[in-house]
Amino acid sequence: MSITTTGHNKLKDYLQGLIKEGRYYIGSTPTTVPIFKTERSGDVITFYLYLDDTVTGTINKFQLIDQAGAVFDDQPDSVAKPNINGLLVAFKYTLRRV
């Protein structure tokens, strides 16, 4: 027996409600940012973080933080961020019934 459409939708709702905020690191210094936008299209949920032009430096990690304050997703990276542009970061998840 497989999960129902209702159950599948509830899992997507749960994931969408689970994420509280984002975090990025410049060196060993963490900075918390709000979720800029969340998109949901079919089985795909995308969380966006936006770093405006006041943020500058080499970002070495992006994270999503859940409602309990725990790290949900941890993505090492190396992005040189100048102070003349914003930066949009996407975390994309697919919850598919199989």
Rank of each mutant, 00 (worst) to 15 (best):
F36Q: 06
K61A: 04
F36N: 15
A90P: 06
T6W: 05
Y93W: 15
R96Y: 07
R96P: 00
R40W: 09
T29R: 03
D73R: 12
F47T: 07
L64T: 05
T6N: 13
Y48V: 01
N85G: 02
T5E: 14
I19T: 09
N60P: 08
Y50A: 05
I84K: 10
F91I: 05
I26Y: 10
S2T: 13
I59T: 04
D73K: 12
F47G: 07
R40V: 12
T94G: 10
I84M: 07
Y50N: 12
F91E: 02
G7N: 13
T31H: 14
L11M: 15
R97P: 00
I45K: 11
L95Q: 04
I45G: 09
V89C: 08
S41C: 02
S41W: 01
L18W: 11
F91R: 09
M1V: 13
A68I: 00
F47Q: 06
D73V: 13
L15M: 10
R96A: 13
M1R: 08
T94S: 15
V89Y: 12
Q75H: 11
I35R: 10
P34R: 05
I26V: 14
T56W: 00
G27Q: 05
S41H: 05
V79A: 02
P34G: 15
T94N: 14
N9P: 00
V79F: 11
Y25R: 05
V89T: 12
S78Q: 14
G22N: 08
I45L: 09
D77E: 13
I26G: 06
N83V: 01
V89S: 10
L95T: 01
D74K: 08
L88G: 00
K61I: 00
F36I: 00
S78D: 03
L18V: 00
N9S: 12
G69E: 05
L87C: 02
D66M: 03
T54V: 10
G69A: 06
L18T: 06
I35Q: 05
L64Y: 14
L87P: 01
D43P: 08
D77R: 04
D74L: 06
L15I: 05
Q63H: 10
T46E: 07
S2P: 11
E21D: 08
R23G: 01
P76H: 04
M1N: 06
M1G: 12
K81G: 01
G57A: 11
L95Y: 14
G22I: 12
E21T: 10
F47N: 09
I35F: 08
T56H: 01
V79D: 01
I59K: 02
Y48N: 04
D52E: 05
L64D: 03
V55Y: 05
L95S: 02
A90I: 04
P82D: 14
V55A: 06
L88S: 09
R40E: 11
Q75W: 12
F36W: 13
P34T: 08
Y25Q: 02
V79I: 15
V55T: 15
D66R: 03
T5G: 00
I45S: 09
T54N: 13
Q63P: 08
D74Y: 03
Q63L: 10
I65C: 07
T29K: 12
G57F: 04
E39L: 14
D74F: 10
T32R: 15
F62V: 03
L11G: 03
P30E: 06
V89P: 06
L11T: 07
I35V: 15
Y48D: 04
I3L: 15
Q75F: 12
P82L: 07
D52Q: 11
T5M: 05
D13L: 08
I3V: 14
V33W: 07
S28Q: 03
